[in-house]
Amino acid sequence: MPRVKRRAYRATYRKKRPRMTFSSAFRLSVVVVASVAIGIGILSLLISTLTPHLASRLNGSAGPYNVTGKPTISAGFINSVLDHYHSPAHGKGQALYDDGVKYDIDPAYALAFFMQESQMGTQGVASVTHSLGNIRSTPGHPSYHGYRKYDTWEEGFEDWYRLISQEYIQNWGLTTVDQIIPVYAPNSDNNNEEQYISSVEYMVNRWRNGYVEIS
């Protein structure tokens, strides 16, 4: 008799899946929570890194801490800062703001330079010269102890904006705080460039977030 070929059947036996125990479920939940935490941390880091770039784009600037662009603080807020620090230039916030619009420079940076150079005109020669940025004297310009001197704060404000706009931005192509300060206040002139840069950027950030006082 011929042999009968037996059909080959697939194995119908299946291994039983292990049941989820409390300990394995706990370990799984720990892994999931840790993964989520790590993901959130990475996302937060990316956001914090990109925020200055995004903010500068929204404010009309071309990059991080680019001094050019639309105002990011109001004239009223500038007056609040000047009043808080008992500046002799109190009440001049509108002039500082308007000059920023005129020269396409965010007045937050002008205010930060004012703070860094003379504590809003309360220290050094600025109380006499009415100078926002303690600009060195040049031939043909009134001076006091080696610095340009102005009759009013408004004149001092506009001369600083004009200097940054015409010399630093237009002539030299320097637009960011990192680029401007090493020329404006170099280490060779007994300044601390790194500290100056970080101070200006910190103040601008704080004011943009609505804080009047620099802690």
Rank of each mutant, 00 (worst) to 15 (best):
N187K: 05
V200G: 05
T12V: 11
D189S: 15
G121C: 02
V125D: 05
S143T: 02
K149I: 08
P139R: 03
N187C: 09
P139W: 01
S165F: 09
N171P: 00
S118C: 05
G124H: 01
P107E: 08
K92V: 09
T176R: 02
Q166V: 12
I181G: 10
T129D: 02
Q166P: 10
A75W: 02
K102F: 00
E193K: 07
I169T: 13
R17A: 13
R17H: 05
K15F: 01
G63I: 03
K102T: 05
T49E: 14
A89G: 06
T138P: 04
L58C: 07
P182E: 11
I105A: 12
Q195R: 13
S56N: 10
I164R: 07
Y109S: 03
T152M: 08
L174P: 09
R148S: 11
H90K: 03
D159P: 15
Y161A: 15
N190E: 15
V32D: 06
S199H: 11
S131A: 04
Y211K: 14
V177M: 04
F113Q: 10
T152I: 09
V81Y: 04
G41I: 04
E155V: 07
E154V: 15
D189E: 15
H84R: 08
L45I: 06
S87H: 07
V67G: 01
V204D: 05
E167R: 15
F157G: 03
N79I: 09
T138H: 06
V31T: 11
W207G: 03
G60Q: 01
S35F: 07
K15W: 00
K149S: 15
K102E: 09
G173T: 02
F77W: 00
Y161P: 15
A95K: 03
E117N: 02
V177L: 06
V36S: 14
E194P: 07
V200N: 07
S137D: 05
S143A: 12
R6S: 07
T138N: 10
E117H: 03
Q119F: 00
N205S: 08
A126H: 01
S118W: 00
I169A: 13
D98E: 08
A89S: 06
S56L: 08
K16H: 07
L28Y: 00
D151Q: 15
S127L: 10
N205D: 06
H84E: 13
A37P: 09
V125K: 02
Q119T: 06
G173F: 00
P139L: 03
G156M: 12
F77Q: 03
A110H: 06
Y147D: 09
T68M: 12
W172G: 03
E167H: 12
P18S: 14
